[in-house]
Amino acid sequence: MIQFLIKRVLQAALVMFIISMFCFSIQDSLGDPTREMAAMSMSDAERDNLRERMGLNDSLLVQYGRFVTRALKGDLGTSYFFKEPTLDVILKKLPATLELVIAASFLIITISIPLGVFCAIKPRHWFSRFTMAVSVIGISIPVFLTALGMIFLFSVTLRWMPSFGRGETVQVWGSWSTNFLSWDGFIHIVMPAIALSSIMLPLFIRLVRAEMLEVLSSEYVKFARAKGLSDGPVYLKHALKNTMLPVITVGGVQIGIMVAYTILTESVFQWPGMGFMFLEAVNRSDIPLITAYIMFVGLVFVVVNTLVDLLYGIINPMVDLVGRRQ
């Protein structure tokens, strides 16, 4: 267990190191940050002065050395736009994104599992065919279209839902304020969560269905029937748990990917999270923030993978990660 975690920590460090190198090496093509920070009419001399003060005139190697030295002390640079340490900026934006991802994951899990299971058990039922057909369409509709469609239907035309932002949030702890504890916060998160889940949902339904179908054709399900078990325990106990194994592996990673997908959803809904922050950082050539965000996302991927592996290990007795003795 400890070994496993140590390995993952080393892996995370390596991932972040590689990402930081990558970000530095492409720095030049991210644009000139001074352009966003100063007037068009500012003179070249002043601009160069500014670059000098920002350390942008040093060679990449010198800049990278400086970055690594600071990073080892926990300082990932200061955002040009927010004028705060990038890590603080990201951590401030993290709750909004995390809540959005949690809400979307909740939708995905509660909808895809029952639907997927139903479609696997009754593949010829009209509802299954309907679900599969809709999911094909669902996969092919881009997120921003879903989002804008919902905004124009539910916000503009029907005026049921707020069109943007997080609304009134309730502060929980530190910079963490939540959408889940107030009605206003809750209705603000509904449409972004649906939009975000809309990409993954069809995928998950199909995944659950496919895995369930495979499990249903397995020997142990046949044996469970031969033991005299009725449909209920066969589907919900024997088949479902086994279905969940691959779904967790694929799904966990997909939920990690969803952190990246929030970029689109957040910018359409003006959701003040990390994704939107990143998009703006790219527009503004806020290089320290871009670097820190990508490193952070790399970390998120490693963490999510670790959690998925741990969860997998808990469900699957054949995997001995958590040091369970045989």
Binding site: R159, S267, F269, Q270
Partner: peptide, 17 residues
């Protein structure tokens, strides 16, 4: 409130937000 996306900005106006 800054709203970056122009369509969302218009929607926010039309929806009364």
């Amino acid at each position: 409130t800054p709203i970056k996306d122009e369509q969302t900005r218009v929607a926010a106006l039309l929806s009364g937000d």
